[in-house]
């Protein structure tokens, strides 16, 4: 069989790291969804040419260090308060692209009030909500989105609704608020889903810049160290357990 040697030339280049990503190696655990989501946001920022317009608001949680990985202006918010920080940044710079990047603890536990009210005010920003049903940075505690029966450091015998209440489906809440124009659940555990997720990010940013109201993009994600699985197992477990509870797809798209 003839030997086909692909020359690594510029013409043959199909995919490479976007310059919007910094050279810092990400601190995330191997296989963590955060890294993939960061990359997609960086790629969309590059493609839309808005690196000089983007103002990101990072949370407290594993992704607090998002500011080390995307070379844009970042404001790191107190735990749960990214939506408030973003509201001010957006109101004061209406022509800039303001977005928050938050985990489930940040957005759906301590930041519930801020998250609901930024949606209710219909701020034209994008909210990226990474739902991996656990507190990663602090070492695997229960989150508002932890599934029933799921074991974590603070529900070691499995989440019991009598003790810990029920998994909280934020997207189904915020889609009812008139100020919200786009609500979708995405994931990055397969190449096909990665491509869809990237389109959703693009749509959210376009909505934000067009002043159409708030775009809420939930990423159903994995935390393989918190779930105590390998990354590949975590992706599989997510498909079988998380996605039925948090079905993917657009919930609202005006």
């Amino acid at each position: 069989m003839a030997e086909y040697i692909v020359e690594k030339t510029k013409e043959n280049l199909v995919y490479s790291k976007t310059p919007v990503l910094t050279d810092n190696v990400m601190h995330y655990c191997p296989g963590c969804s955060h890294g993939t989501i960061h990359k997609l946001i960086a790629e969309v920022i590059e493609e839309m040419g808005v690196q000089d317009k983007a103002i990101g608001v990072s949370p407290v949680g594993c992704s607090v260090f998002a500011y080390n990985y995307l070379n844009i202006d970042w404001v790191q918010a107190a735990h749960g308060r990214a939506a408030a920080v973003a509201t001010a940044a957006h109101r004061l710079y209406p022509d800039k692209l303001v977005f928050t990047y938050q985990g489930d603890g940040d957005l759906a536990a301590i930041g519930t009030a801020e998250s609901i009210h930024v949606c209710n005010r219909g701020e034209s920003i994008a909210v990226f909500y990474i739902n991996n049903a656990i507190y990663g940075m602090t070492g695997g505690q229960m989150a508002p989105t932890t599934l029933l029966g799921m074991k974590t450091a603070t529900c070691p015998y499995g989440r019991d609704p009598q003790l810990h209440g029920y998994p909280y489906k934020v997207a189904d809440f915020v889609c009812q608020l008139p100020g919200v124009c786009y609500v979708t659940r995405q994931s990055v555990h397969t190449p096909a889903n990665v491509r869809k997720a990237k389109k959703a990010i693009r749509k959210a940013f376009e909505n934000a810049l067009a002043g159409k109201g708030l775009s809420f993009v939930e990423f159903v994600a994995t935390c393989n160290s918190g779930w105590k699985m390998t990354p590949v197992q975590a992706n599989k477990w997510m498909e079988e357990n998380m996605l039925p509870a948090y079905p993917l797809g657009d919930i609202k798209n005006e």
Partner: peptide, 16 residues
């Protein structure tokens, strides 16, 4: 929606 949110909006504005 609260004073907690207010001061964090101030934080956001000041950061800009």
């Amino acid at each position: 929606e609260s004073e907690v949110s207010s001061i964090n909006m101030v934080y956001g504005g000041a950061a800009c």
